[in-house]
């Protein structure tokens, strides 16, 4: 499969904090999920790959273009769609005006062609009917769709989405997942998320990041398989478990190294994810 993004040894420090530490990965067409607890470095990695901030060390290319040079950076940005974690909006703009503004930033200066593109992306995210409404009047889910429409302007080959489903209710989340799945057809999407459900439903591949380093890189099925034989049920929380929580049935679901004779359960992606993190990370994630 053709590699769209190739990163090698990316490192970045903020003050004394190590946000990224020698991260290497290759991304190809389809949706790749980026999982990790708070502070794992997910947003930092996305911002580096989106060229919002340069790495201290390491390099990466997008479709062969190196953002380390001025020319390469512009070429990468021409092929990039980016939805930040908290997309900002100019409150006085309508949905159409905001996406139009982003289209101008993406060098679409011809008015007729630009407006055609704005209408296309607003239609793609299902916002044609509210395109004339001020963004401040739109719901949180609609605002996220406006931001996604802005990211889709220019039909980018590489789409970076930073936790786009956070704060959305279940129905909006499902709607957004459909949009991401559609956006992932024929392009490379890197989706940062806290939700293992997002990964299970959307991604052909998953990368787990913790402490600024890559802990896992493979398919969701491979991540799930990591928990095979390591998930069990008990009536009390097992102190030997890496993580454990009470389920709706009143019993505890434990992940870790099961005691002899434990009542083993079918593993899920979330179990595999928790086991991939070390003890401290697992506590945070659990």
């Amino acid at each position: 499969m053709t590699c769209t993004v190739s990163a090698s040894g990316l490192s970045l420090h903020y003050g004394g904090t190590r946000a990224l530490d020698d991260v290497s990965l290759r991304l190809s067409a389809g949706v790749t999920g980026l999982l990790g607890p708070n502070g794992a470095g997910k947003t930092t990695l996305l911002r580096v790959l989106a060229t919002a901030v340069p790495a201290d060390r390491g390099s990466f290319t997008v479709l062969g273009h190196d953002p380390g040079t001025s020319h390469g950076r512009r070429e990468v940005r021409r092929r990039l769609g980016y939805l930040p974690q908290t997309p900002g909006f100019h409150p006085d703009f309508t949905a159409f005006e905001f996406v139009d503004y982003v289209a101008i930033l993406k060098e679409l200066t011809d008015r007729a062609a630009r407006h055609r593109e704005v209408r296309r992306v607003l239609d793609e995210v299902g916002l044609t009917e509210v395109r004339g409404k001020h963004i401040r009047m739109l719901s949180g889910g609609m605002r996220q769709r406006v931001a996604l429409a802005a990211a889709l302007v220019g039909d980018p080959a590489f789409l970076v989405l930073d936790e786009p489903t956070v704060g959305l209710d279940p129905e909006q989340r499902m709607r957004f997942r459909e949009l991401i799945a559609h956006a992932g057809e024929g392009r490379t999407v890197l989706l940062s998320t806290h939700q293992t459900e997002d990964v299970a439903m959307l991604c052909h591949r998953v990368v787990v990041l913790a402490g600024g380093t890559v802990r896992f890189d493979g398919t969701p099925a491979e991540l799930t398989a990591r928990a095979a034989g390591r998930v069990w049920s008990s009536t009390e929380r097992d102190p030997g478990a890496k993580a454990g929580w009470r389920t709706g049935l009143g019993t505890f679901r434990n992940v870790g190294d099961p005691p002899a004779g434990a009542d083993l359960l079918e593993p899920t992606l979330e179990d595999g994810y928790l086991l991939t993190l070390d003890g401290t990370d697992a506590e945070v994630a659990a």
Binding site: T51, R74, Y101
Partner: peptide, 14 residues
């Protein structure tokens, strides 16, 4: 100060 700064900084416009 610019709510769209993050989107602007990754845009191809210099």
């Amino acid at each position: 100060l610019d709510p769209t700064y993050e989107m602007a900084v990754v845009a191809p416009v210099h």
